[in-house]
């Protein structure tokens, strides 16, 4: 990054020819970008389901788990990158680890909240029918928590797609590369292209999750 921060000289504000000539490049950056963002969310979700279920099963673990996830979420991402750079180098892993941690911190709350929101009479009915607690958790409480988990997943996915831009600062070429390069060459079109493409992907995946959520939970009462 140039000293003195971001200052632009608008000598080439809009350059459509440049845009159309770089579609392949955008696609290549997008692939790395989405790979990093989505793998992070997937890892975060998996961990959140495991830990969230633990918190639901053993209530005493709930407060410490929430405390840890809050700290995790408050951790500045650049500090995390700098620290990991010394261990894993400028690789995808260096980016995926902190992004997974953010997704996890967000999602663990969704999972515990979703499970805790299952009405007590549903839980009691399941117990009284002869469900043992593990089966009850996996086949009743967790499925009933899906709408809340999907809501959390949408937030986590959008923020992960947005955060993955930062990877370009440590040399991993995500869509953030367009900001870095555009800034270095005072080329506003490239920066705007980066913003628009990131926002577009965020909207696409948010929409996909919204739709798949609707298909997964035809039973949820809709506020039409």
């Amino acid at each position: 990054m140039k000293p003195g921060g971001l200052t632009f000289h608008f000598h080439k504000v809009s350059d459509w020819a440049w845009l159309t000539g770089h579609i392949g490049y955008f696609w290549q950056l997008s692939r790395t970008h989405l790979y990093i963002a989505l793998v992070s969310v997937a890892i975060g979700l998996l961990l959140a389901l495991l830990v969230g279920c633990l918190a639901a099963r053993i209530p005493t673990t709930h407060p410490p788990i929430l405390a840890v996830t809050t700290v995790l979420y408050a951790w500045p991402s650049l500090a995390a990158f700098a620290f990991l750079l010394s261990i894993t180098g400028p690789s995808d892993t260096t980016v995926i680890i902190p992004l997974s941690a953010y997704a996890f911190a967000l999602l663990v709350r969704s999972v515990t909240e979703g499970i805790n929101n299952v009405p007590d009479d549903v839980r009691i009915a399941a117990t009284a029918m002869g469900y043992r607690s593990m089966r009850r958790l996996l086949t009743i409480e967790l499925p009933a928590a899906v709408p809340v988990i999907i809501a959390g997943l949408r937030v986590a996915t959008v923020s992960s797609i947005s955060l993955a831009t930062v990877a370009s600062l440590i040399g991993v070429s995500t869509l953030g590369q367009l900001f870095v390069a555009g800034e270095n060459t005072d080329f506003l079109t490239e920066i705007i292209a980066g913003v628009v493409i990131v926002a577009m992907w965020a909207l696409v995946f948010d929409g996909l999750l919204l739709l798949s959520g609707r298909m997964l939970t035809p039973w949820a009462r809709r506020v039409s």
């Binding site: 009405p119 009479d121 549903v122 009915a125 009743i140 039973w219």
Partner: peptide, 13 residues
């Protein structure tokens, strides 16, 4: 076992 609020599983038919 039958309870007042029904206690039906919301995600199942």
């Amino acid at each position: 076992y039958v309870i007042q609020q029904g206690g039906l599983f919301p995600h199942r038919t």
